[in-house]
Amino acid sequence: MSAIISLQDRGIVEIAGADATKFLHNLVTNDISKLVPGEARFCALLAPQGKILVDFLVFVEGDGETRRYLLDCPSSLEPDLLRRLGMYKLRAAVRVTSRSDEFAAFAVLGEARPDIPALAMARDPRSETLGWRLIAPRGAKAENAREDYEAARIAAGVPQGGVDFAYGAAFPHEANMDLLAGVDFTKGCYIGQEVVSRTKHRNLVRKRVTPYHVDGEAPAPGTKVMAGEIEIGVAGSHSGDRGLALVRLDRLADAMAAGTILTAGGASLDFVVGRAAG
């Protein structure tokens, strides 16, 4: 059986009430109206200018008036998420509650469905190689194998907010949300939708979090990525000989075409363009 990995840096927010589906669907980047128990959606709440304020995985439990949504979000951003959801609630029949004292997020790598009690469980929608994501009672038995999850995440090219991109400064395309099933381009209006749609249809993506391989020690997060004397981006998270960096795509393409060695903190980086680092 695969290890149950505790994700202690995640919080759990519950959205319930008669208007919960409409409320959440009209706010986030993905289609919530079609979400069913046993599935999860990768979503973000954006600023009106289209930049990511907080990203999260959404699960649904129950049906009809008992239907409720569980958001698996960064714990550091949970207070701000609760505040923003409360601000948008207005007169909607919706209850927004923190459940982080009771429940926690866990990951299980591998194909087989975990045989463990959970409030909600689904395949991670961002990548098949990330296995299962679940919400279970806090204190559930788990193994100290976070490094295995980080290695799988980085190999799949899945960025982590706050390390690989800055919340409040990055657009969904820059964080690869369009490549990781995090944006529904057919669902209609939501906050920031016009900017996201325009970026896609006008091909305005200038930067992306891009995987790389390194021979030797990977650069620390925040290290500048250089093509000769030209700065093309900044390094993010890494595991072993793999890492992620937010780079200017045009400068990366020019450097690769010219055979320019790409470096960060003295390490030579080999970027993997157009696919995950695995």
Rank of each mutant, 00 (worst) to 15 (best):
Phe56Asp: 00
Arg41Pro: 06
Phe59Tyr: 13
Arg84Trp: 08
Leu85Glu: 00
Leu27Ser: 09
Leu70Cys: 02
Val60Lys: 04
Arg67Val: 10
Arg67His: 03
Leu70Arg: 00
Leu81Gly: 03
Glu61His: 09
Ala40Cys: 13
Asn26Ile: 12
Pro79Val: 05
Asp72Phe: 01
Ala47Leu: 10
Cys73Pro: 12
Ile32Met: 11
Ser76Pro: 08
Lys34Tyr: 08
Leu85Arg: 03
Asp55Pro: 11
Leu45Cys: 07
Asp63Phe: 15
Gly50Lys: 02
Ser75Cys: 11
Gly38Phe: 14
Gly38Arg: 11
Gln49Thr: 15
Ile52His: 06
Arg41His: 09
Leu27Ala: 04
Glu39Arg: 14
His25Ala: 08
Leu77Met: 11
Val28Ile: 13
Leu82Val: 06
Val60Gly: 09
Lys51Asp: 05
Cys43Thr: 12
Ile32Glu: 04
Ala47Trp: 07
Leu85Met: 05
Glu78Asp: 03
Leu85Ile: 08
Lys34Pro: 05
Gly62Lys: 05
Arg84Gln: 11
Asp72Ala: 02
Ser33Asn: 13
Asp72Asn: 06
Cys43Gln: 07
Asn30Phe: 06
Leu82Phe: 04
Arg41Phe: 11
Val60Arg: 02
Leu71Glu: 00
Asn26Asp: 10
Arg41Thr: 13
Glu39Tyr: 12
Leu70Asp: 00
Pro79Gly: 04
Ala44Asn: 06
Arg84Ser: 10
Asp80Thr: 14
Val54Cys: 13
Leu57Asp: 06
Gln49Gly: 12
Asp80Tyr: 11
Phe56Val: 02
Arg68His: 10
Gly38Ala: 03
Phe42Asp: 04
Tyr69Lys: 00
Ser33Leu: 11
Val60Pro: 02
Cys43Lys: 01
Leu24Asp: 11
Glu39Asn: 14
Asp63Met: 11
Pro74Cys: 01
Gly50Trp: 00
Leu71Cys: 04
Phe23Gly: 04
Glu39Leu: 09
Ser33Arg: 15
Lys34Ser: 14
Arg83Ala: 14
Asp31Val: 02
Arg83Tyr: 12
Leu77Pro: 07
Gly64Asn: 08
Val28Cys: 10
Leu85Gly: 05
Val54Met: 03
Thr66Ile: 04
Cys43Arg: 05
Val36Phe: 11
Val58Lys: 05
Thr29Phe: 03
Leu71His: 00
Gln49Asp: 15
Cys43Trp: 05
His25Val: 11
Ser75Tyr: 07
Gly38Met: 12
Pro37Asp: 12
His25Thr: 04
Gln49His: 13
Ile32Gln: 09
Arg41Ser: 15
Arg41Leu: 12
Gly62Thr: 08
Ile32Arg: 04
Phe56His: 00
Arg67Asp: 09
Lys34Thr: 15
Ser33His: 14
Gly50Thr: 05
Val28Pro: 04
Pro48Ala: 11
Leu77Arg: 12
Arg41Gln: 15
Tyr69Ser: 00
Asp80Val: 13
Ala47Gly: 13
Ser76Val: 10
Ile32Leu: 03
